[in-house]
Write a protein that binds this DNA or RNA. Structure first.
Lengths: 274, 274
DNA sequence: CAAATAGTGTCTCTAAGACAATATCAC
DNA sequence: GTGATATTGTCTTAGAGACACTATTTG
């Protein structure tokens, strides 16, 4: 009779071939633009962090931050570590998007990826200050379906415009998977990962607790509303938005003045809402 | 200048240590019990497929069906293949639950697992007939939170009762992760995987399209209702349930007779609802 | 006829959307 | 004052839950 101890001593995992495993992260931020009118509130844009690849494969193309899973960490820890390495910001929250495991997805070999959405607040990025010489850049995101059912993922940074085309494949449980028609200068299958991440983020943006992670500690309700509108590409009546979020926030006694209109009260996240 | 081709020829993934990757599947079925009363509709139970481990580690304990990812398949294909191997049924639908990647989760070494929920219809299982001599068995599932916030996962098959205890850990995005307090004769971290799968399934059971996968081609509306009630552990008024599902089903002209009460019309899933 | 489910119609309640009206500031 | 946002309050509507009532069967 062989004991468990004996068995484990003789057990050799290397009998099976193993894939490399990476975590790739779609780090999103809401960026407030400069004011164009002294009294008008600024516009805001959803932005995504991309890294310009320095080496082969896909040299000089843009890719999601990510890296190989190490032996002493969980894959969520790996995702957080990768974001920290690129931005110097440790995100408060990450959300799984899915596993991308098509055998041919990486020309370097058998590499599967677990993808995450991460929310970064603009305030945190500004505080640490990103290295301008770095290959990491924040791209403005646009993601829409045209009349033929083709999704256009457009990522813009200065004069760099990346446009990927994707189609939608229904899988079970009402979920969709994106198929890349044109990867638009994005490396690997990252266009499909970003599409899935955006779909997940838009869906999650109904949850007020989630999108509060985009905001600094103190914020106005219209800034809060702008976050939801920017992500979901909808517009909400301010009166209704206030009612909806009332249980998620608490007033402070501070105001934002000097905006050319009535000062807005600053609010804080309510820790234990409901 | 090194070409991409050259680079890839010299690239060697084996510089990095790699984990083994498995897919583990929580295959659920709704089992109709025998009638206890000539006129009363039968009760139904949510069941989960478990395999008795024949070898070390966790010899003679119960585990989820699953297996190692192969080089020519996606991880979803791997999950479907494993279920097919155990049940002879190819499930219509699988849903991701999460990645379990704690370095010490498997005594055999560095093995991470991607977990799935799969819905199997009782009709399909009956048709192929499961090998009774097999180590695979369907366990009835009960999963509830007690007053102290401890979750009790109780799996029952004949005289075998497995009870695992878990606590809930809040992670970001309103998600929870379960921590095993007592694994209750379940192998590896499978108690936590099952808890996560049940949480996902209960949440998904609000979606009528999803739970239709538990049913045969033709079904009564009360059978449909029973599925939702069994999974979510709630009760719904029949009149309201009918209204809610009306856009998901179409009538047939067949009836179920001989039940000691008014015959029920059989319905079919509407392919393109709304 | 009794007991069970099958099936229809209607009332109520509530949460979300629409909208009207007022408040307050910088220029 | 003008034009912008901030803030409050109310009306409307759609959807879900509650419930009353009828229909149909078998022992």
């Amino acid at each position: 009779m062989d004991s468990e101890k004996e068995f484990l001593e003789n057990y050799n995992l290397s009998d099976y071939e193993r894939p490399s495993v990476t975590a790739d992260v779609c780090a999103f931020m809401i960026r407030s633009e400069d004011k164009t009118d002294y009294r008008r509130n600024p516009e805001s844009k959803l932005q995504l962090l991309l890294i310009k690849r320095g080496g082969h494969p896909y040299k000089d193309m843009w890719a999601l931050p990510g890296g190989f899973l190490q032996k002493d960490e969980t894959i969520e820890e790996c995702a957080l570590r990768e974001i920290k390495e690129e931005t110097n910001v440790l995100p408060v929250s990450i959300m799984p998007v899915g596993i991308f495991s098509k055998p041919e997805r990486d020309p370097r070999g058998w590499i599967i990826s677990s993808a995450y959405v991460s929310i970064i607040s603009e305030e945190a990025v500004k505080q640490v200050g990103m290295d301008d010489a770095s290959d990491a850049q924040w791209f403005s995101v646009s993601f829409d379906r045209d009349d033929e059912g083709v999704y256009h993922l457009i990522l813009t940074f200065d004069n760099t415009v990346l446009e990927a085309l994707l189609s939608e494949e229904k899988t079970s449980f009402g979920r969709t998977r994106f198929k890349i028609l044109d990867s638009g200068y994005l490396a690997f299958d990252h266009a499909a990962i970003i599409a899935a991440a955006l779909t997940a983020l838009r869906n999650e943006a109904k949850n007020y607790d989630t999108i509060l992670d985009f905001l600094p500690e103190k914020f106005t309700l219209s800034a809060f509303q702008k976050v939801q509108e920017t992500i979901m590409n909808v517009s909400v009546l301010p009166a209704n938005f206030r009612r909806m979020v009332s249980s998620y926030v608490t007033e402070t006694d501070e105001y934002v003045r000097g905006e050319g209109h009535r000062p807005a009260k600053l609010y804080k996240r309510k820790t234990n809402n409901k």
